[in-house]
């Protein structure tokens, strides 16, 4: 990236497009989000701490971030596998499967939540086989992980897939010539090349999971301290007309998302440099 390079750019339109971009960004995103911060600012410091660090709220961070971490982890493993299979192995219906990966992008979250609850509850298609074996999915923290895995899957697949496509065959051949087994090649040669993109996908899936609400409340069980996610805490606070408490927790989440995104963008920068 040539950030500071001076360019004699012959292309016009930087002024108007940049101006419009900043204007629209401010109107739609920045000003509304600043309302959140201002509302929170009405709280005293101790009031703020009380709102964002109460035991129930702390438990909800643990659950939300923990489940998002677990879901992003599952997605990192299976996402890489799916991407690998989609790029490298031919099988019938591949195009269809490839397209299906984007389903969670397009399916409304409420529908996803109701449907996942239908499939994974004790009398559901999958749940009825798990329940007798003592595995409860719906209405437990496991349900939260399932929902987050669902919505986060495309992120890993779609960030890793293009990188696998661009892997240079010669590297693998060279490794094979030098006597490395396939598994060794993957662990020592390919995996390091994939790492930046896997991390990016992981972080994206994680960020998305942390904020998710619609699909989770249908399947989570919502028990305080056990399966209550942070967005639900915000709703609960609103329900008690505690706007400042709600915006305080929301501000914490907003900061977390911002930091996460910044990390993602840095990761992408790093991965781009790595790839070059």
């Amino acid at each position: 990236m040539k950030l500071f390079a001076k360019h004699n750019n012959v292309l016009p339109g930087f002024g108007p497009t940049m101006g419009y971009t900043l204007l629209y960004l401010s109107l739609v995103v920045l000003i509304p989000l600043s309302a959140l911060v201002f509302k929170t600012a009405g709280l005293s410091w101790s009031g703020f701490l009380e709102a964002v660090a109460a035991p129930r709220v702390l438990a909800s961070y643990r659950i939300t971030f923990g489940a998002a971490l677990a879901a992003a982890g599952i997605n990192a493993v299976f996402g890489v596998l799916v991407a690998w299979v989609l790029v490298r192995y031919p099988f019938p219906g591949k195009r269809l499967v490839d397209a299906l990966v984007d389903l969670p992008f397009a399916l409304p979250t409420a529908v996803a939540g109701i449907t996942l609850a239908t499939v994974y509850s004790a009398n559901g298609w999958v749940g009825r086989y798990l329940e007798p074996r003592g595995i409860k999915v719906a209405f437990t923290p496991l349900g939260i992980i399932i929902a987050m895995t669902f919505i986060g899957l495309p992120f890993v697949v779609r960030t890793v897939q293009p990188v696998i496509e661009e892997l240079d065959a010669e590297i693998e051949e060279a490794a094979a010539c030098l006597g490395a087994s396939r598994w060794q090649t993957f662990c020592r040669v390919l995996f390091p090349l994939l790492t930046p993109s896997v991390l990016t996908g992981f972080a994206l899936a994680f960020a998305r999971g942390v904020g998710e609400y619609g699909s989770i409340i249908f399947i989570a069980g919502n028990m305080p301290m056990v399966s209550e996610i942070t967005p639900l805490i915000i709703i609960t606070k609103l329900e008690q007309y505690d706007y400042q408490g709600a915006t305080a927790v929301a501000t914490v989440m907003l900061l977390a998302s911002f930091v996460l995104l910044l990390v993602i963008n840095l990761l992408q920068k790093w991965s781009r440099r790595y790839a070059e």
Binding site: R56, A59, M223, P224, M225, V226, K237
Partner: peptide, 13 residues
């Protein structure tokens, strides 16, 4: 917040 319901569910959990 922090009322009896919070206390008993916190304890129950």
């Amino acid at each position: 917040d922090g009322g009896i319901f919070d206390q008993i569910t916190g304890a129950a959990a």
